[in-house]
Amino acid sequence: MRGHGSVKLFGLMEGVATVEIVRSQIWQWLHHGTRLADGRAITRELVHTLVMEEIAKYRAEMPQTTTEEGIAQAVALFEEVSLSEDFPDFLTLPGYERLDLARSYAHD
């Protein structure tokens, strides 16, 4: 979200609250043994695969809007707050830490 709290994706505005809901649901599914309608268990590997499929769609439709480094940082943050053993209170805490680090490197 590039430090703005919201971003336009596929013609819709998405914000931090939406990401909080999604990552919370994914964390719960992982920790409660949820299965998809086709019987596949929701695992960290499956979530990672699905995230990468969505990233590929994003790259195809919005190639000029972000960098590969930005995508890698977003994936790492999302996986940190949704795939960890412990449930982080908010994604914004590690997100702001990453944003502050990025800004400090930009000024060095």
Results as ranks from 00 to 15, higher is better:
F10K: 02
G11F: 00
V51I: 11
E45H: 06
F10V: 03
E80D: 15
D89V: 02
L46Y: 06
W27N: 11
T49C: 05
H31D: 14
Q73R: 11
A102I: 06
M62R: 10
D38A: 05
E53G: 06
M1V: 02
D108H: 12
Q25C: 10
S24M: 05
E85D: 14
A106F: 00
G39S: 13
T49G: 10
E53N: 05
R23W: 07
T65Y: 05
S24H: 12
L91R: 10
D100Q: 01
G5S: 07
K57C: 05
E79I: 06
W27T: 15
A76Y: 06
W27K: 10
M52Q: 14
R59W: 05
M13L: 08
L91Y: 07
Q73I: 10
L36P: 08
A74G: 12
G95V: 03
S84N: 15
V51W: 00
K8E: 09
V51D: 01
E20K: 06
A41H: 14
H107I: 06
D38F: 04
M52C: 07
A106P: 00
L12W: 01
S24E: 10
W27R: 14
D108R: 11
Q28D: 14
P88W: 03
K57D: 04
R98Y: 00
G33A: 08
T92G: 03
R35L: 14
H32T: 15
D38N: 11
A41C: 12
D100I: 04
S6D: 01
H32P: 11
D86Y: 07
I55V: 13
D38M: 08
T67V: 02
S6V: 03
Y96S: 06
E53C: 03
Q73S: 12
T34Q: 03
D108E: 12
G3F: 02
L83S: 15
I71W: 03
G11H: 02
E14S: 04
P94W: 02
D108V: 00
D86S: 11
H32D: 15
A102S: 13
G39T: 14
I71E: 07
P94A: 10
A41R: 13
D89P: 09
V19F: 01
A76T: 14
I55E: 09
Q28R: 07
L50R: 09
T43D: 05
G33S: 09
L46H: 13
E54M: 06
I21F: 01
K57I: 04
M13T: 09
R23I: 02
T34L: 04
H31Q: 15
Q28A: 10
D108W: 01
G11Q: 03
A60E: 09
Q25W: 02
